[in-house]
Design a protein around this nucleic acid. Structure first.
Length: 140
DNA sequence: GCCAACGTTGGC
DNA sequence: GCCAACGTTGGC
């Protein structure tokens, strides 16, 4: 199973919005970046991801699961763009801030640190465990 | 609100 | 196919 990170902004799509969708999930639309799209094409049902909020919170706040593989993005007619569906799994007991992540040497290679602009990114298994531990949240 | 970094577009 | 110009993102 692979791990990912999905970036959003509370003003656009909040964690509460995601949780409210329940097990039905919601498509992760609006991505207009080839790298991010390519990562979504690699995703499989059951893959887990962090839900990260940029701009204001700048924190990982929850865990999501891929519940539909890549399909055309319903918000555009442009067939270049695809997206997956994700559903909320659980909220972090304590959100983990970007500052905390940057302060942790073992997370120095995280894409979030290295390429902060990429909106959908892979997370290594050890990074996954570390961030979950920092959030006092079950990793599986 | 600023600006650096990055990705995309379009003229040549 | 190169690269300058432009737009967007996101941390500060």
């Amino acid at each position: 199973m692979a791990y990912w990170l999905f970036k959003s902004e509370t003003s656009t799509w909040s964690w509460d919005d995601q949780v409210a969708k329940g097990d039905a999930g919601e498509e992760w639309d609006g991505v207009r970046n080839y790298q991010a799209r390519n990562f979504m094409r690699e995703m499989k049902i059951g893959d887990r991801g962090f839900f990260y909020l940029s701009q204001k919170e700048k924190s990982v706040v929850g865990i999501v699961e891929v519940c539909a593989t890549a399909h055309p993005d319903s918000t555009t007619d442009d067939d270049r763009w695809e997206c997956v569906d994700i559903k909320a799994v659980r909220s972090f007991e304590k959100s983990v801030s970007l500052d905390q992540i940057k302060a942790n040497e073992s997370l120095a290679e995280m894409v979030l640190v290295k390429n902060s602009r990429l909106s959908v990114q892979p997370v290594a298994a050890d990074e996954w465990k570390t961030v979950c531990a920092m959030g006092q949240t079950k990793a599986d």
